[in-house]
């Protein structure tokens, strides 16, 4: 008897796997067609891939130690030795920007993963259980939204102290409400539907209902928000560092580099132009991709 059950489930499993595979294949073909329709997505992905590759191979690409100061060679223009010249204490700008890619991508992905995780959790709980729990959670989220994100991040940095890690934590916390709101709205919409009721009647646990029937229906807006969120997180963290409240002094963080070099803007304009351009490009890439995803996943807008 027991043997039979496992056999049938495994056959079922195979059929399921096959269906999933076919689905995935169709989806992939569709995605390729979509890509042609959304050139901005292609541009965005290309820029992101470029930065990811730079980040992975940073030690190989960089020509100098990004933290090694050499005062004799300070504020040089671009040359064969220093592609983008040197900064105020003689560090190689090109190498610093290359290594900064690692920091920025780390900030973007870690902060977004954190806020996505907690935002989803809070939103799901608030929307699914409702009542006082919903009230308390959403009130707290609203309070976070009544001040500019960078100000809230500054408050959190005041509490935790200044460091890159704390800047990441601050930015993560700041973006939790956005995800929580999206998820709560979707959960509220889905909760009343027949198949969720059916799952409840069968006796599925709350966790199972949330992860199997509710979450898959909110994936699209979450993906869009998360893509845009990575860009926003990178921007805010760079802003914090620019204010001197993020990355530690001397770290090759793009925002911090802008702050260090702003006094040399006349003598060595490249030290300010280049890091800012890097921030701009990476944020633009995530925005391009996010916009295209929104157009693709939400046909209502068109």
């Amino acid at each position: 008897m027991k043997h039979e059950t496992t056999a049938s489930t495994s056959r079922e499993g195979q059929a399921l796997a096959l269906r999933y595979y076919r689905d995935a294949a169709t989806r992939f073909r569709k995605a390729r067609l979509q890509a042609a329709r959304y050139p901005s997505a292609v541009i965005g992905v290309s820029i992101i891939l470029f930065f990811v590759i730079v980040a992975i191979f940073a030690p190989l690409i960089a020509t100098h130690d990004p933290r090694q100061a050499n005062v004799v060679e300070r504020l040089q223009g671009s040359s064969a030795e220093h592609y983008l010249g040197t900064d105020g204490v003689g560090r190689d700008l090109f190498s610093r920007i290359v290594h900064g890619t690692r920091i920025s991508l780390k900030v973007g992905f870690m902060a977004t993963a954190f806020s996505l995780g907690f935002g989803t959790l809070f939103g799901a709980i608030a929307g699914y259980y409702g009542g006082w729990l919903d009230n308390v959670i959403m009130r707290a989220m609203d309070i976070m939204l009544v001040m500019p994100s960078i100000l809230l991040a500054m408050v959190i940095v005041t509490i935790l102290g200044q460091s890159l890690t704390n800047a990441i934590i601050a930015v993560s916390i700041v973006y939790i409400p956005q995800y929580a709101r999206i998820l709560r709205a979707s959960v509220l919409k889905v909760r009343q539907l027949d198949y969720v009721m059916a799952a409840k009647v069968i006796g599925a646990s709350d966790f199972r209902i949330l992860t199997r029937t509710v979450l898959p229906n909110c994936i699209a807006p979450l993906i869009v928000q998360a893509t845009l969120g990575i860009g926003a997180a990178i921007l805010d963290a760079a802003g914090l560092s620019f204010l001197g409240l993020g990355a530690e002094i001397g770290e090759p963080e793009w925002g911090a580099m802008l702050n260090e070099n702003r006094n040399f803007i006349r003598r060595a304009p490249l030290t300010v132009t280049a890091p800012g351009m890097a921030i701009f490009l990476i944020v633009l890439a995530f925005n391009l991709l996010g916009d295209a995803l929104r157009d693709a996943l939400d046909p209502q807008i068109n």
Binding site: L235, L258, I265, G276, F280
Partner: peptide, 10 residues
């Protein structure tokens, strides 16, 4: 997408 602190410096 513009980091406004960079825009200001430019």
């Amino acid at each position: 997408s513009m980091p406004i602190f960079w825009l200001g410096l430019m």
